[in-house]
């Protein structure tokens, strides 16, 4: 199994940390992982993306031109990465702020209203975990218990009290994801 993912959105949405949690989860189940950020002069409000690869084998290139899955969280990223999904691949996106919805018929498309759900849960910071939940419902490449282990490993101890909230956010994402197109 090799899953090549791009997560793209605004800086400050938790794009990079979502990728990091996914990578940690892969490590927790003995897989190979790579995490390659766009590290340009990005800042809060600018665009940010990260390529995450989780595989049973040694990972070749950490930099890719096409992906099994694109997780897209703003319009600029939709414009850039919709076409980069492999035929038969998966696109997960939050329709919040999207003006041109994805149109490809040869990929599986799912939407998750993560910004809305996170705000309903009273904490917009868990937005990225709602998205992660949606993705893992569609592509269960890592087990939820390993995500929780990964969170424990990647978060400083003073934030461990927030793990339960993160778990709820993942569950929320899993419940709220909607299928838009089946390839």
């Amino acid at each position: 199994m090799t899953e090549e993912i791009i997560i793209a959105g605004f800086g400050g949405q938790g794009v990079l940390s979502m990728g990091k949690i996914l990578a940690y989860s892969g490590i927790m189940q003995d897989q190979e992982v790579s995490w390659m950020p766009s590290y340009g002069p990005e800042m809060r409000g600018g665009t940010a993306n990260v390529t995450v690869i989780v595989s049973d084998e040694r990972i070749s290139s950490p930099v890719l031109n096409e992906f099994d899955t694109a997780i897209i969280l703003n319009q600029q990223s939709m414009d850039k990465f919709e076409s980069a999904v492999k035929k038969g691949g998966t696109l997960v996106y939050d329709p919040n702020g999207i003006t041109h919805h994805p149109e490809r018929k040869d990929i599986n498309i799912y939407s998750i209203e993560a910004a809305k759900k996170a705000s309903e849960m009273g904490n917009t910071k868990i937005f990225n975990m709602v998205v992660l939940g949606a993705y893992l419902k569609v592509k269960p490449i890592v087990k939820i218990e390993n995500v929780i282990l990964g969170l424990k490993k990647s978060l400083p101890a003073r934030y461990h009290s927030l793990i339960a909230l993160n778990k709820d956010a993942i569950t929320m994402g899993m419940d709220a994801v909607k299928e838009i197109n089946k390839a």
């Binding site: 190979e32 950020p37 990972i59």
Partner: peptide, 8 residues
């Protein structure tokens, strides 16, 4: 690339 990427 090698400086910024994370791996095991």
């Amino acid at each position: 690339v090698i400086g910024q990427m994370m791996e095991k």
